[in-house]
């Protein structure tokens, strides 16, 4: 990654972190309802992959931990926050909520809340690309636990059989809701599970964005060149619980602390500081500016936006 890009991405990652932390606060204040799944800890995954891909051009689909993937594709944070507030100005017009962020104009094809559900959809998007003859690829971000669904295997088989341009990114955060991977999954290395389908795969550190980026470049180039699907496993960790109702009783505080020592934002920040490209003051200022932007623009927009009209309840059911 170029130096200029790294500085830009650091700023983006700070936004992604602070945006999610602000969501947490808004949830406590009951401004956001439903289920809320937050991304802190995993920022290098989405950012590293999408820096190697073409946001807004390549198609992206994911599960319910979806706010940041949408923003990375080009969604306006204001529209994402307004969606969480259930407002008419939300990117899904308040009909979707946290788990169903959509921004088709930026080719973010949505967050879906059935674990594993996006696998075949991603392959189908790749089929659509294949039929239409574009140079886009389909990128599917899901967690490790999704790989225990039947459609994971059905999709891998079809994607390999038909050489579909789809990149499966497995953000392995070690937990499926509150069950650790070693208690749910016979083979811990997820990238090994796709070998039986003849699919190229790799595993790498998901906390260091330079590592993610290098591996993602290989993966993206492979898929874009028409060789078929690729599976990239990123080893990562979510700091918060699965969703807001989760007090994390299934893991130790020591384990959480150990992962926070490898925080993706700090890793990138410290690298830039060591290279003399950034000072700690610059970083603190970046955080402050980000917080001000979130408060003065993002939250303000969500707060002041109108509710959907009840008369429009049945709008969007059928075309």
């Amino acid at each position: 990654m170029k130096l200029e890009d790294k500085k830009r991405v650091l700023r983006e990652m700070v936004l992604h972190r602070r945006f999610e932390e602000r969501c947490y606060q808004a949830y406590i204040e009951r401004k956001i309802g439903g289920f809320l799944h937050l991304y802190p800890g995993q920022e290098a995954c989405c950012n590293g992959v999408m820096e190697a891909a073409r946001p807004g051009h390549d198609y992206v689909i994911t599960g319910y931990r979806d706010h940041i993937h949408a923003i990375k594709c080009g969604s306006d944070p204001k529209a994402v926050m307004a969606e969480l507030y259930g407002k008419e100005t939300g990117c899904s017009k308040g009909r979707g909520g946290s788990m169903h962020i959509f921004d088709v104009a930026h080719r973010f094809m949505g967050g879906y809340a059935l674990v594993g559900g996006p696998f075949p959809l991603a392959a189908g998007i790749a089929k659509g690309i294949q039929l239409k003859g574009g140079d886009e690829i389909s990128i599917c971000f899901l967690g490790d636990a999704a790989n225990n669904q039947g459609v994971f295997h059905e999709t891998l088989n079809m994607a390999a059989l038909w050489k579909l341009p789809v990149l499966f990114v497995c953000e392995n955060n070690q937990y499926g809701i509150g069950t650790s991977i070693d208690r749910s999954t016979a083979v811990l290395d997820q990238y090994k599970r796709v070998c039986g389908y003849g699919i190229e795969s790799a595993q790498c550190d998901g906390q260091d964005i330079d590592v993610v980026y290098e591996h993602a470049r290989t993966a993206v180039d492979y898929v874009r060149s028409g060789k078929g699907p690729y599976f990239l496993e990123l080893m990562t960790y979510r700091y918060r619980g699965h969703s807001m109702s989760d007090s994390r009783g299934y893991r130790t505080r020591e384990e959480e602390e150990a992962w926070k020592q490898r925080d993706p934002i700090n890793i990138l920040r410290d690298r830039l500081i060591a290279a003399g490209e950034l000072s700690m003051d610059d970083f603190v200022a970046m955080e402050k500016e980000t917080d001000a932007y979130i408060e003065n623009e993002v939250i303000k927009f969500a707060e002041e936006s109108p509710e959907p009209n009840v008369a429009d309840l049945e709008k969007y059911v059928l075309a």
Partner: peptide, 24 residues
């Protein structure tokens, strides 16, 4: 365009739906 699918109803139905998102 005439796809003989594996016996994977959930998978190929989802794949068709995903393609439909692009106008197929």
């Amino acid at each position: 365009r005439v796809m003989d699918t594996p016996i994977s109803e959930g998978g190929y139905t989802g794949l068709g739906i995903g393609a439909s998102f692009l106008g197929v």
